[in-house]
Nucleic acid binder design. Structure first.
Length: 343
DNA sequence: GTAGGGTTAG
């Protein structure tokens, strides 16, 4: 009954049914927690998790997965650590490890990831395709593309998620040719790409600067019945923008059927700074500010553009405005950091 | 394979 409601997305109905159940057991809790996880309601999931006094393996797994799937990697690893404490009286299994590796990958923590690989052997847990896929993602994000590829070759069966992880891995490592070849191999195998796959392949086109092909790929999304997300638009804006095709990038943004998010305009702003286009930069900057008024990055970017155009007064004015408003600088992160620490 | 796991930019 609960699962029926969950399948059609009626999560509140599922919850009221859950609340009315006289004989709620771990299974019902786990089902409900997973449902909240799927719809991004991490707090509601945590609330249910906290209600259980005795945490068993599956309950831990459901909650760790929930954190990992909703970009709360730190909390996922925190809970994983808690579970490793002998007092917890549980031992992780492959489900736990898959989520933990995913969390390491999100944090770019290859050290912890490698430790998990060793620990896995200690526990006598063998590598399966799910685990291998999370390791592919981890190693690729940490720049160890050879190790990622080795794991990809070892898969028993290459499915959509595995292909997607590897394509994205090649994409972010600038190995466009390999990414494109793999994408074609996937299509030949009649595996239908999803939105994530397109993020990967578009990233690859972007890295090798294949504008025409990348744009064509983006346009092909509709044929697969996929509606490009803001992220996809942002990648294509970046692709066109880096190639200096700023007007086309601007036109594309104007055609987005929804309100573009700041990242889309940010990609245009970045392109304007690469190609010293002050007028368009101002347009992009204005939109960025409206959508994300608290971020200082856009101001600094425009200030740099003013400076390189010799408009020192404008640059100074903007930099002063940042200081006066006390805007926070969001520190950038880099995947290469964890690669370097691995060397 | 009977609850629970793996893939989204720069």
């Amino acid at each position: 009954m609960i699962t029926g409601y969950i399948e059609c997305g009626k999560i509140e109905l599922a919850r009221s049914f859950f609340d009315a159940m006289p004989d709620r057991n771990n299974v019902s809790y786990i089902t409900m927690i997973s449902a909240y996880s799927k719809y991004g309601s991490v707090e509601s999931a945590k609330e249910l998790y906290d209600q259980m006094a005795e945490k068993d393996l599956l309950l831990y797994n459901a909650m760790i997965a929930c954190f990992a799937q909703n970009n709360r990697a730190k909390e996922a690893l925190q809970l994983f650590d808690e579970m490793l404490n002998p007092n917890a009286n549980v031992q992780p299994d492959k489900m736990t490890l898959a989520s933990a590796i995913s969390a390491c990958s999100q944090l770019g923590d290859s050290k912890y990831g490698t430790w998990i690989e060793t620990y896995m052997r200690e526990l006598g847990i063998g590598m399966d395709d799910h685990l291998a896929t999370s390791f592919i993602d981890l190693y690729a994000k940490c720049g160890n593309i050879d190790k990622a590829h080795e794991l990809f070759n070892s898969l028993q069966k290459r499915d959509l998620v595995a292909y997607t992880a590897m394509i994205l891995g090649y994409g972010i490592n600038g190995r466009g040719k390999e990414a494109i070849e793999l994408f074609e191999e996937m299509m030949d195998a009649d595996i239908i790409p999803n939105l994530v796959t397109f993020t990967g392949i578009l990233t690859a086109y972007n890295h090798v600067g294949l504008v025409k092909e990348g744009y064509r790929c983006f346009m092909s999304m509709q044929r697969h019945g996929l509606l490009p997300s803001q992220d996809h638009y942002a990648i294509v804006v970046d692709l066109l923008g880096r190639a200096g095709r700023l007007e086309e990038a601007h036109e594309l943004i104007k055609k987005i059927p929804m309100q573009p998010h700041a990242g889309v305009w940010g990609a245009l702003l970045l392109a304007c700074s690469l190609h010293n286009n002050v007028e368009l930069a101002e347009v992009a900057w204005k939109n960025c500010c409206e959508l994300e008024p608290d971020s200082s990055g856009y101001h600094s970017l425009l200030a740099n553009i003013y400076a390189s155009a010799g408009r020192w007064d404008d640059a100074k004015r903007l930099r002063r405005a940042v200081e006066e408003k006390g805007l926070v600088k969001i520190p950038g992160s880099s995947w290469t950091e964890c690669f370097e620490s691995q060397q």
